[in-house]
Design a binder for these strands. Structure first.
Lengths: 204, 204, 204, 204
DNA sequence: TATGAATGAGCCTTCATTCAT
DNA sequence: AATGAATGAAGGCTCATTCAT
């Protein structure tokens, strides 16, 4: 067999591409119609494949939603890791996390809708999410806060975990507001504002 | 003939009671199974009525969800109005709003689940919600913030509307976290902490 | 007890009146919506009584339809009997029957709709109808025809029963056409035309 | 490779066949139980397919009834057109129309029941029917009659449209009678008798 | 007699999933 | 690997009928 040229993608690559294609279609459809309202057939049509084909790449409809979540989180975590590399200042770490968070969602409105709305449908799913990745995220924030406290930058009397939830909640709300707002503005731009407010508080 | 006692409830009262009963059952079932997974028959069974009876009091399944929202909001708004009566200090106003917000949800876990999870299923519903009542709420917060700025209590360079979203986001996140957490703690207790943090920020 | 005056109708009369009222409402509703589409509640509302009241006067929904039929037929037969009294000429008898037939239906469009359309819904009902009253009617026509044949007025080679069906079919078609036509014309006026054409066809 | 034989039906053919199969089953079931009493599941069972399959070929239950009507009318019109080809004599044209009319219904009792009984359920449907195809049919009859009048074969004083309705009514009645009668006789045989009687009646 | 709230059986329709081709 | 026709379980909703008042 001759060497595989770059022109013809390998079989594994072709398969991964189609998987990607379907996942992308699912994001679009779930965002447009909502998870329960969107039919598997809608996703297949959007992807330009037959309904049955979806089941060659995904277990079932739920698996589509879960895969969207996992795939996106994997990518986001990678990006966050790179963004934090070599950054020692805890406040700057918070700022970078916030930028990745809002930057990613702000880049892809459909994805943002799926994350802010569709993924929160079932307590079952949310429990699953919140017991792992969300906890990791909150922990990362919490650690930066604790560090800042240790470094004497932040007040010590505030619980780091409560403060972490608060920062996360604020960022999350920005994302949800951006989706629902009719105005078109850059979501990412709010990352710094939120972190600033978080750091300084409202007091003069 | 002596005055008719209140013993026997009027027909209108009985009807309102049954409506209330079904709504309560819907909250329980939607919280337990999720809106799409819960069947109208489940709600009816929970309420101890026949399935058809639900349709005497509500248009359809969607109407149940919408009614839960509207009924709860009406009550909450009433309570908030009473809580703010005669309170001039803007920071105290924020504190009272936060207490009502978390106090109500913390009192009724099922209701909190419906509000934090089930009501956010569809962009359609969220748009409806966010375009009216949520805006009112954010406005009320924003006004208190602006007042505090005018009074020289808060920094002037922060946008009141952004700050309002941030405070709301933080409270909302507390509620969601409370639902999803396995630990049992008093949600209402976090209202003051959140407001304190919001007001002071993290800076020393 | 004082003599019952004519002012206050007897109890039996009042009951008969309400029965009549409901039956009339049923005719209107069945004509407007069709038997299966019309709900018992519609009939009750039209009659100005509660839904349950219908069941004090009629067995069930089917009974409404059957009662309309029977009541109307009873009246029609009475009228026909009076119209034929002392009329010896068989052709004139046919003419009178046709006039009663189209005259009655032409007087009450809703009733005509129920008769021409709604009553023919189920083979079950039609079989019941056709095996008794329709047969009587066809027989009455057939007898007049046979008489006319005996009297040498009509051709003998035509089967009286076939000819009877044909005349009935023609009258029935006039009624159906009248209902469905947008034009408003006097149905009764066609009785003579149909009979003329028929008689001419049967003439020796 | 040898020529593909017709053994394996094309996909389009298979689809058309299944549609036909379901339509046939609907005719049987509607005739046996009546349109409103027959369930879609009954039709599916009769056709040997799953209930959901019906909805791959038809919009909904109503569409089944409408499709029976349209399909049958299309076929009947084709046959009638062929039967009238090259026939100039107006009386013979009437005779041929009558033969097609009763011949078709007499060949398929279930179909006849659907046409004579079930399709007449709703004024809505009847209006739709009577405003188009029935009018065409009456027109075709009426034209033959008018021609016969012009040719001096029929009396001129009778309105062709009234006479057409009469002939149609007579044929229609024969069909209805045939369905409801317990006796088994050849419906088609009555076509000539009816036309003879009609023609005799119209003769100058 | 009359009411009308309550019942619950019944049915149309949807759609995730399968599987023969 | 891909297709898409077929499946059939499931569920929202209707409405004839009942019955406590």
């Amino acid at each position: 067999m001759p060497t595989v040229t770059a022109r013809r993608p390998s079989r594994a690559q072709a398969s991964a591409d189609k998987r990607e294609l379907i996942l992308r279609a699912a994001i679009t459809q779930f965002a447009r119609r909502g998870f329960f309202q969107a039919q598997v057939a809608d996703v297949a049509r959007e992807a330009g494949v037959a309904a049955g084909t979806v089941y060659l790449y995904f277990e079932n409809k739920d698996d589509l939603l879960i895969s969207i979540f996992e795939q996106t989180m994997r990518d986001a975590i990678d990006e966050a890791r790179r963004a934090l590399e070599g950054v020692a200042d805890p406040v700057e770490r918070l700022r970078r996390l916030a930028r990745v968070h809002l930057g990613r969602l702000g880049q892809d409105r459909d994805l943002a809708v799926v994350f802010q709305v569709e993924l929160r449908q079932s307590t079952k799913f949310m429990e699953r999410f919140s017991s792992t990745l969300l906890q990791d995220y909150l922990q990362a924030i919490g650690e930066a806060i604790a560090e800042a406290q240790t470094a004497g930058l932040f007040r010590r009397e505030v619980s780091p975990s409560l403060a972490a939830k608060m920062l996360y909640g604020a960022l999350d709300e920005m994302a949800t507001n951006w989706i629902l707002s009719r105005r078109r503005y850059r979501l990412a731009a709010q990352a710094d504002e939120v972190v600033d407010l978080f750091v300084h508080g409202m007091k003069r």
